[in-house]
Amino acid sequence: MIKIYAPASIGNVGVGFDILGAAIMPIDGSLLGDCVSVQSSKTFKIKNYGNFSNQLPINMKDNITWKAWNIFNKKIKIIKPVLITLEKNMPIGSGLGSSASSIVASVLALNKFYKTKLTQIELINIMGKIEGFISGGIHYDNVAPCYLGGLQLIADDTTPVTQNLPIFNHWLWVIAWPGSTVSTSIARKILPLKYKKEICIKNSRNLSTFIHALHTNKSELAIQVMIDEIAEPYRIPLIPNFLKIKSEIKKLGALSCHISGSGPTLFSICSNLKIAKKIKIWLEKNYINNKSGFVYICKIDKLGARRI
């Protein structure tokens, strides 16, 4: 049996809409991500379990793991019945790369099970294609970091599609999912079809300076330009009291506070554990609205998806 774990991820990372993505892991050792196992079977079967398996579609062919298996088999021309087991630990529509986690784990598990030895480029292209079915367009800002780990810059739909970026090891990332959902497709449709030239220039300046700051080890500069001009201003209505929460989080010492992906998960960057713990407690009291919600203090997961 092959079993793959694929971590949660933060899309956009504030300043880099559809261009930046970061894999994360809780510092308490929890596995925040989906697991997929593949084993031989007389007939094709998919089994689902986990905290959020009840959110999965009833129709098997609407399941991401089926889509992965279908595309994978068409590509490698292997028709072999398997039992795929999806451990759904990630809430759907959370803004933490839930679909990417299932996709990456499925594709890598199938690749290892069939011993096809597809290249990294071939695998990531398959992952992006499946992600496109979910969000309405191919983008890699979740699948790339989920697969490869670290902070990834999405270069283009060319070879290579992604570049690994340096990151500040002392940064702690506090992520908070309130227990509600936001549709990725709706969050994308709410964005304007056209942007003013001034907005584009400002966002390009911020993104370029942010990447420069990473490479020159200037963490204060990175935080200073970590400003989202493209998505966050238009998605504020999707996150109740977002501006108030952001203000309170910064008063507690957070370096930044942004929407993770399409939301409603928020992430804040902290310079030390003491501040991160204060923010975690505040978010648990003021942002989590049901028993399903959670808050984790995380660091960047540099390993990405792996066999367990």
Rank of each mutant, 00 (worst) to 15 (best):
I211Q: 00
P237Q: 06
L238C: 00
I199T: 07
L207D: 00
A213W: 10
N203G: 13
K202M: 09
G261D: 02
I190S: 11
S204N: 11
R205L: 04
C200K: 03
K251R: 10
C257L: 05
K250V: 07
I245K: 14
Q224K: 08
G253L: 13
A213E: 13
Y234S: 01
T209M: 12
Y195L: 02
K246E: 02
P237T: 12
H258I: 06
G261E: 06
T209K: 08
R235W: 07
K196C: 01
T216E: 05
N203E: 12
F210K: 02
I236N: 15
H215D: 13
D228F: 08
N206V: 08
N217P: 07
L255W: 08
C257I: 01
E198R: 03
H212S: 04
F242S: 05
S256E: 15
R205N: 01
S208P: 08
L255T: 14
K251F: 14
L243T: 06
G253I: 08
K197H: 03
D228R: 04
A254T: 07
P240Q: 09
A231L: 10
T209G: 06
I259H: 05
S256T: 09
N241S: 14
E232H: 07
A231S: 14
K197M: 05
S262Q: 02
K251G: 12
I245E: 15
K202Q: 12
E229D: 12
G253H: 11
L243E: 12
D228Q: 09
L214K: 06
T216A: 09
P240I: 08
N241F: 11
K246C: 01
F242A: 05
K244Y: 14
I223G: 06
R235C: 10
H215I: 09
N203S: 12
F210C: 02
K196G: 01
Y234P: 01
I201A: 11
C257Y: 01
L214R: 11
G261W: 03
L221R: 03
S256A: 13
I236V: 15
L221C: 02
A213C: 10
I259S: 15
L193M: 04
Y234K: 00
L191I: 08
H215T: 15
I245V: 12
L252W: 14
I227C: 07
S262C: 02
S260K: 09
I245C: 14
I239G: 12
I259W: 11
N217M: 13
P192Y: 05
C200G: 02
H212K: 05
S256G: 10
C257R: 01
I223R: 09
P237E: 09
K196Y: 00
I227R: 09
S208F: 14
I259N: 15
H212C: 04
L238I: 00
K196T: 01
